[in-house]
Write a protein that binds this DNA or RNA. Structure first.
Lengths: 252, 252
DNA sequence: CGAGTGGTTGAAACGTGTCAATCCTAGTGG
DNA sequence: CCACTAGGATTGACACGTTTCAACCACTCG
């Protein structure tokens, strides 16, 4: 497992942030922009498999994902792992560490990632001087919460097939909305079946068989280490789920 | 199902808030107290079974539980229900989801409850003028998040017995910490087995058999419509879980 | 070329769900 | 005071979904 974190030679200034250009994300006014610009202390480039945050450790930094995929998870003592959610561009990493001294979950990069690095300490200044950003932070936290609600509903009450369909629909939709997919070429969700299993609360073998049913129905295609959604509508039908229409969302 | 919400004849002023007296909760300074006092527009007294928030509806109010037990849940179209978390005194109700649009989950009273009522609109003023309270809000949201993380781990990866043990340990611990238990008499968690089942993601029958195993082991006792934890330590052992030590927590 | 990771498959064991009764208790109205 | 009722808890039998075990294949990388 690659543990190397390298600081980028070139650091994208927030003024030129590629995310901000996308219509999904709300704009900053110049004051906010100034603060966030100074809030950002570095940029991290990560290889797939890198651990970003380790459960049980103190972690003085916060991150915003700029590019790439990651995932949050927890493990039990005997190694059973539960994936809690996925990290996409615009997502804040490590917010809940602020209260408890130690992090209560881990985060790992799924693909190459770029992260903006912030100093946790400076959150106080953010709350003091930038109410609108403070509001955004709360907004972000409560959005993550509602995603977890839906996941919990899924793992607790949906069947294996529904769960799988929901997960792929959910990820495909989020990926689309945040614009992680390449302009050209297949829009692939970069997960192994082990990740899917650990997200759905199923065994690897059963996950494989469930995904196969989706493949056979022509709804998705499984690639080398990832999958591609072919029939969005059918997935929604199977899952019994629709993405809720979101307007612009904030990000720090 | 009783749907009546009645406004209290007597309204406890925030200055005399009984929760604030407890050592679990952090104190307000006088400015904060003044704001919260004006933020609170009413007090609600609810009968068991009352729906507080309805999924899919806009809900212009926020609440803080002052007394009693409630629970948050989601349901699928065919009626399958998943309990997401329980509401205890000091908990904020209605923060999750898009801060200003439709609710993505429902909330129901489990016992008689008392709620403080706030106007969602005035959140803006809170963020503008009271950074410390804004910070608290984020703290609260991200705490709920870490609880959901643990629940998701539980439902996804723990066995039925571990899950049941975890849930009872978790609730017993929270109840103890917030002081909902009566000073005298048995400390009972006011859930039916149906609630437990819907929290654990299990069927009612299997939940019954699982709880019976815990009863037979003498770890808990099941009462009429609730349970009592007898051996905290053993419960932790079975669950493979320990409550993380929290300092004082904020509440609005 | 061998090793490692990820995916695939079948069979058997096991945990959970479903169905269908029964019991218990608190609350209701005659 | 006694049916009567309704919600909650309990139980056994059986069906079904999921896990586990144990292979094997395909592909990439050093």
């Amino acid at each position: 497992m690659a543990q190397s974190k390298s600081f980028a030679a070139v650091r994208i200034p927030c003024e030129l942030c590629p995310l901000r250009a996308r219509e999904t994300f709300r704009d900053f006014d110049s004051t906010e922009l100034g603060f966030v610009s100074s809030f950002k202390i570095a940029e991290l480039l990560l290889e797939p498999g890198t651990t970003i945050i380790d459960e049980g450790q103190r972690h003085p930094q916060l991150y915003t994902a700029l590019a790439g995929w990651g995932f949050r998870y927890k493990i039990l003592e005997d190694g059973r792992r539960q994936v809690l959610n996925y990290v996409l561009p615009g997502d804040l990493i490590g917010l809940q560490g602020n209260l408890m001294s130690e992090m209560l979950h881990s985060v790992e990069a799924l693909t190459k990632m770029t992260l903006c690095v912030f100093e946790r300490e400076r959150l106080t200044a953010l709350f003091q001087n930038h109410p609108s950003l403070a509001y955004d932070l709360t907004w972000i936290a409560s959005r993550e919460e509602s995603i977890l609600d839906e996941h919990l509903l899924s793992v607790g009450r949906r069947t294996a097939l529904e769960r799988a369909a929901y997960l792929l629909a959910f990820l495909d939709h989020r990926a689309q909305a945040t614009g992680v997919f390449p302009e050209e070429g297949p829009k692939v969700l970069p997960l192994t079946q082990q990740h899917v299993a650990d997200t759905l609360g199923l065994s690897l073998v059963h996950t494989n068989k469930t995904l196969r049913r989706l493949s056979d129905a022509g709804v998705v295609r499984w690639l080398d280490r990832g999958s591609e959604v072919l029939e969005r509508g059918k997935l929604f039908d199977i899952a019994g789920w629709q993405p809720s229409v979101e307007g612009m969302r904030p990000f720090i």
